[in-house]
Structures are given as structure tokens and as C-alpha cells.
């Protein structure tokens, strides 16, 4: 689907100049992209006003931002007209980034896995009480 769309855009932009110059997208494309970015900004704000519970609202915000980012990358950064290796670089960078996030968040989430004392809640609850005991019983 994407390849067809890409070929169609390139084909339409290729007919008005010879092969010597680099691919240049028609002006119309730029303004359509800009308009869609504006709409998506409004959507971003809209999504945040929906009042979803915390985790889904983060995911929704990131998804909308990701859509905007791909539009900027594909059209404004010419990924659609350049050789595929640049897209491979971008995608692999994002892959390593998500890898870093995923494993670290997974670790933080599963901290109290074997012994509940190691979890964050235990410390916040007990360190609260420990502080009280220290104030309550000075020597």
C-alpha cells in the first residue's frame, strides 16, 4: 500500500523536471502536509482533554505525536524521495531507543517481583512509618 502511494507521489512529481535534478515534490504536497500537521496538533490537545486514565492518555499522546513525526519525516525530510537507507537508519535508531525504554521500564515495573519489600510502594509506606518512629522515640 505504502509502496504504491510512494510511487504515485514520485511519479506525479517526476514528470515536471528531467532526471538531472533531485526529486522535488510539488508545492501542493507541502501545504497539504502543513495543514494536516495543524489538524493533528489540535487532535493532540483534544486527546488530552478526553480525560482518559493516565496510562492510555500517555499512549494516545505518543501515538498522535508519532503520526505527526512520521509525516514530517516522510515529506519534509524527503524520506519519500531519498534512497531507502536513510529510512533504515531512522527506523533502527527508533528501534534502539524503544529497546532502551522498554527494558528499563520493565525493570522498574517488576521490582517487587520476588520480595515485596523491594518494591517502591513498600519503601514509601514503611519509610513514612520509620520516620515517624524516629521522631516519636528519641533517646
Amino acid at each position: 500500500m505504502f509502496a504504491k502511494f510512494r510511487k504515485e507521489v514520485l511519479q506525479r512529481s517526476a514528470d515536471d523536471h528531467s532526471s538531472g535534478e533531485p526529486h522535488v515534490l510539488p508545492l501542493k504536497v507541502y501545504f497539504i502536509v502543513f495543514a494536516s500537521l495543524m489538524v493533528l496538533t489540535v487532535v493532540t490537545v483534544g486527546v488530552s482533554l478526553l480525560g482518559l486514565p493516565p496510562v492510555p492518555s500517555i499512549i494516545a499522546a505518543i501515538l498522535v505525536a508519532a503520526v505527526k513525526a512520521t509525516i514530517v519525516a516522510v515529506f519534509f525530510m524527503h524520506l519519500i524521495a531519498e534512497d531507502k537507507f536513510y529510512s533504515v537508519i531512522l527506523v533502527s535508531t527508533v528501534f534502539f531507543m524503544l529497546l532502551f525504554f522498554g527494558l528499563t521500564l520493565l525493570d522498574m515495573d517488576s521490582r517487587g517481583f520476588k520480595n515485596p519489600e523491594e518494591s517502591l510502594e513498600y519503601w514509601q509506606q514503611f519509610s513514612h512509618e520509620k520516620a515517624l518512629t524516629e521522631e516519636a522515640a528519641p533517646e
Binding site: T44, V47, S48, I58, A61, I62, A65, A69, V72, A73
Partner: peptide, 15 residues
């Protein structure tokens, strides 16, 4: 610009 696109919702629109 891309970085700001991600920064804006994460910092300003926290619900």
C-alpha cells in the same frame, strides 16, 4: 521540530 512534537504533549498535556 520532531523533538518538540513529542515534548509538547508529554510535558504540557499531562492528564
Amino acid at each position: 521540530d520532531l523533538i518538540w512534537i513529542f515534548l509538547f504533549p508529554l510535558l504540557y498535556l499531562v492528564k
